[in-house]
Amino acid sequence: MRAIILAAGRGERMRPLTDTTPKPLLLVQGKPLIVWHIEALAAGGVRDIVINTAWLSEQFPATLGDGSRYGVRLHFSDESREPGGALETAGGIRKALPLLRDGGAESFWVASADVFVPGFRFDAEAAARFAADPQLDGRLWMVANSPHHPSGDFAIDAQGLALSERHGAAPEQPRLTWSCLGLFKARLFDALPLGQAVRLRHCLEDAIGRRALAAEAYHGAWTDVGTPERLARLNQAP
């Protein structure tokens, strides 16, 4: 089992902090935000982690090294020279598929580098069950809606599958917000055009329509580190 941490965004809402430092490398409680994911993935038995980069991409290997200090091997998928710049979430995963598949893996963890989830376990048994399930192309962990995203993203049906407004969610069904943590099969991204920007929502809707996207609630602490104010609150926490 491998993983990709999505870290290519410009971080416009975090300016001026991100004018000189990529958002995933900003310090949260004493260490770069992305390191919280790296350490949690290592604790879950993941040994190869891909990081896609674009904005100030040279700072990632300079800061993180080859991953040996964390007990992992880091691989960088650099999008900074793509004609249109960063490839969005799904486009970045499509570009990184050869790295994610190296060694024969066909499923992998995905985590966005700009969320802080200190208690989340990248559980190896859950990953193995997902890899062995022929029906599923993805599994999402969902969190309570935040004030800046009150409508949420997806509902969850009685079978534990994700529903969207386009595919089966009734207006009265409660929605949750995707935590930006999940498991995915490589085949979900195979048909995407290489080198083009594609958002992950496109792939998620496709999987929902085929009843191939599972979802479950996560009740631990979770923060979308999207503004300087949220970052400051995390760093003021005891």
Rank of each mutant, 00 (worst) to 15 (best):
E106G: 01
P22L: 15
V50N: 01
R199D: 14
A144D: 14
I93K: 01
R175K: 03
R187T: 14
R230P: 07
S146M: 04
T63L: 02
D157K: 14
W109C: 11
R47S: 15
L100C: 09
K23Y: 13
P174L: 02
L181F: 12
W178M: 03
L161E: 05
G168L: 13
W36I: 04
W178P: 04
A86C: 07
A113H: 13
H37Q: 12
F120C: 01
R94Y: 05
A126Q: 11
T89P: 03
F189A: 12
T89M: 01
D153A: 04
Q59E: 10
I51R: 00
G45I: 12
A169P: 02
D102I: 00
L97C: 08
L136A: 07
R13C: 12
V35G: 11
A90F: 13
L17G: 11
N235V: 06
F108Q: 10
A214E: 00
Q29N: 12
A40W: 01
V198P: 12
P228F: 06
Y218D: 09
A43Y: 00
V225E: 08
A43P: 06
L192D: 01
N145S: 01
N145I: 03
D206G: 13
L181S: 00
G220V: 05
A197Q: 07
V46C: 15
R47W: 13
L25H: 10
P22C: 15
G104I: 01
T223Q: 03
L194D: 13
A128W: 11
Q196Y: 05
L99E: 08
T53C: 07
V198R: 15
A54L: 05
D153K: 02
A214R: 01
A62N: 09
A232Y: 09
D137M: 11
E229T: 09
A169T: 00
P171Y: 10
E88M: 13
H167A: 11
K185C: 13
A197V: 02
A96H: 04
E79C: 04
L6S: 09
D190P: 02
V117F: 04
L183R: 02
V28Q: 07
G84P: 14
A111E: 06
G84K: 05
S151E: 13
L194K: 08
L6R: 07
G30T: 12
L188Q: 14
G85A: 02
G67P: 08
L64E: 00
G168E: 08
G119N: 11
Y218T: 06
L200Q: 03
E88F: 13
W36H: 15
T227F: 08
S107I: 06
A124W: 05
W36P: 09
D102S: 00
R13Y: 13
F116V: 07
P118W: 03
W55L: 09
A215C: 02
S57W: 03
D114N: 15
I93T: 02
I51P: 09
